[in-house]
Design a protein around this nucleic acid. Structure first.
Lengths: 197, 197
DNA sequence: TTTGCTTGCTAACGAGCGTTAGCAAGCATA
DNA sequence: TATGCTTGCTAACGCTCGTTAGCAAGCAAA
């Protein structure tokens, strides 16, 4: 009995609110009653829209994984671009996803461990594949003489680490726009990678 | 009725085991019964040694904070060392703490949010102070012409981010020793900061 | 031998958890 | 008017949670 038509589907509202709570309190410490209250509902009512608490987490984690892959694919689609440029675009794409929905990103980064099997293993496989993509890109950059690093795997981990800390401090109303942040991060991180820094 | 004298106090054993569980499952998802089982005890027996579940978390978080501050103080004690050298030592000190007890480090980095007030606010103040120390060190390095970065605060966040990802992938029996990791991280991160990279 | 500390047990408490069953109101479509 | 989908309620289920009370065994010091 909705008084006004919901802007998005109720399910999407639940996902959004749950994501914010999961980020703030953690998945395990967020109760369905808390989530329902935040939405002005009773706990039982949630189950008209979702199957389980974990289903929400699953959707958030795998949904964001898709976004990250899409961003990387777009950044590396044009093979005529120098590898360093592709890496810069991949960094900016990654940051764009992180800033577009930093709550979901934080959940993606930290709460996946509460997925039960086999989802957990599937998720880790996706994450490994994503990291491998960066590693291979850096490797190609080293081979092409555009980048320098003692260890591509090490460099990839460090690079993603720097980026992934972003949701911990990013505020949408901060003085830096997402694009400025992305650009600055790319500059600073590539400064340690580019041959002629 | 201990058959053999405990190597360390029972309390310390509880802390260590709890830390490992908190890291693996998260604070909220770790039950006292699980912790007790891991130690070969019943849940109620834990309370002969500790006051509460949160007390363990408190000890771990604030204990590690002390270690980080001690490392930083040692790294920056000698004012005759160039600032870049002090920063390198601070990085290595930070990595040393992270690798010496990566489980406790992971808890320190991610589970502090389950501290209740006022401990939570106190903890965040400590963390802010630690970040500020790095920021000021970088600032001094920029002022002295030893480092270059568009924004010291930004550089400090990025630097700590790279380091703090370490507990997520560090394995004590990996091919790199803690010192090698520390050195390599310092190289790569300073490579983007040093004037003559 | 007495005292007291450390260590551990069993049993239970009140509370909160995720989830389900059954029902019903409003709405769009046929 | 009839059908069925969306949305929401109340009440309750079985279960697990952190924690406490009361008791007792082993040991070290007095």
């Amino acid at each position: 009995m909705p008084a006004t038509a919901p802007l998005r589907s109720r399910k999407a509202q639940i996902d959004r609110t749950a994501t914010a709570l999961f980020r703030a309190r953690g998945f395990a410490a967020t109760s369905m009653r808390e989530l329902a209250t935040e939405l002005g509902l009773e706990a039982g009512s949630l189950y008209s829209h979702i199957k389980s608490k974990e289903e929400i987490l699953h959707r958030v984690c795998f949904g964001l994984a898709e976004e990250f892959f899409a961003g990387f694919a777009a950044a590396t689609a044009d093979a005529s671009v120098p590898v360093a440029g592709q890496l810069r675009q991949a960094i900016e794409g990654h940051v764009r996803v992180l800033t577009r929905d930093s709550a979901a990103s934080a959940v993606f980064l930290h709460e996946w461990r509460h997925l039960s099997e086999p989802a957990r293993t599937e998720f880790l496989a996706l994450r490994d594949r994503y990291e491998a993509s960066f590693r291979e890109l850096i490797q190609r950059g080293i081979a092409a003489g555009e980048l320098h690093a003692p260890d591509a795997a090490f460099a990839a981990l460090t690079l993603l680490a720097s980026l992934n800390w972003l949701p911990a401090w990013y505020k949408p109303d901060g003085k830096l726009t997402p694009d400025e942040i992305a650009h600055r991060l790319a500059e600073q991180l590539l400064g340690g990678l580019l041959v002629n820094a």
